[in-house]
Design a protein around this nucleic acid. Structure first.
Length: 274
DNA sequence: TTCCGGCGTT
DNA sequence: AACGCGGGAA
């Protein structure tokens, strides 16, 4: 069943969130701006990655690729080089693919509808709604981990396995028609604070999944290969075994995966960046 | 050692 | 619906 909030509940909640925000707001180079391209770049970087780590990468990235056109025409290797150390390298590939699509399909102008945004590679439900809310300041429902934390902590203090379908109506009911961008900044900052003071409430979300260990994982090996290529331009398949400390068959498998995703190029026995 | 979280793929 | 994907901080 859907929880119905009274106007008093809504006003009280909004005041609580906004008063926290007014005294604790975080300032970032990707906030309080309207350029959809910069919003998109920051949102790709912010997928699975903490704001503090994103900031220097965002600044360097925008300096090197100030416009969607400049990103669309760059060699992917350059993009991956700037991405080095941020993690989840395929996001860089998706981001550039997105830039190319915006240039070719939308004449270099980012679309403002959820549907068109979500059709772009690397943009799903969250990123599309975040771009609409932040770049176009349109009141749209946005849900992500910090927002989940706020609503779970506030409205489901004793529940477990909470479905988004229960949270979404509450986000919609408390969404102000004006100042949407600031509202979501406020919710996210409030959520970060809640997670600091309590055991992460988002862990009580139904779809919260614990991730497998990183050490020795394929993800780590993929990252090592990309790092090596950024540093040394090329690496041979033979060198991979000592780099990854694994069997040749395993190294081939990892490299093949990267090649299939378009993150590396394999010519003979040598790997290099696209 | 544990924690983290949106997207594409399967 | 479940899984794979980085790397740094706590």
């Amino acid at each position: 069943m859907i929880q119905r909030l009274s106007p008093q509940d809504v006003a009280h909640f909004q005041k609580q969130v906004l008063s926290f925000y007014h005294q604790n707001k975080r300032v970032f180079p990707f906030r309080d701006i309207n350029d959809p391209y910069k919003i998109v770049v920051s949102e790709y970087m912010l997928q699975q990655t903490q704001t503090a780590r994103v900031v220097p990468f965002f600044i360097r990235f925008i300096e090197r690729f100030p416009t969607v056109q400049s990103l669309a025409t760059a060699p992917l290797g350059d993009v991956l080089t700037l991405w080095q150390g941020l993690g989840y390298n395929r996001r860089a590939k998706f981001l550039q693919k997105c830039a190319i699509a915006v240039v070719s399909q939308f004449d270099g102008v980012f679309p403002s509808s959820l549907e068109e945004l979500q059709s772009l590679p690397g943009i799903g439900a969250y990123t599309a709604s975040a771009v609409v809310a932040f770049a176009f300041e349109t009141p749209v429902m946005v849900i992500e981990t910090n927002i989940r934390a706020v609503f779970i902590h506030t409205f489901f203090p004793d529940d477990e396995k909470i479905e988004d379908n229960l949270i979404i109506p509450l986000i919609e009911q408390t969404l102000p028609q004006n100042g949407v961008r600031e509202w979501y900044y406020a919710l996210m900052d409030y959520g970060v604070d809640i997670k600091k003071r309590h055991k992460n409430p988002a862990r009580r979300s139904k779809h919260h999944a614990k991730q497998s260990p990183f050490l020795g994982s394929n993800r780590q090996k993929r990252g090592l290969i990309l790092r090596e290529l950024v540093t040394n331009k090329t690496v041979s398949v033979e060198e991979l075994c000592s780099l990854l400390q694994c069997e040749p068959q395993k190294a081939e498998e990892i490299a093949a995966g990267l090649e299939k995703e378009g993150l590396i190029i394999k010519e003979g026995r040598v790997l290099y960046l696209p």
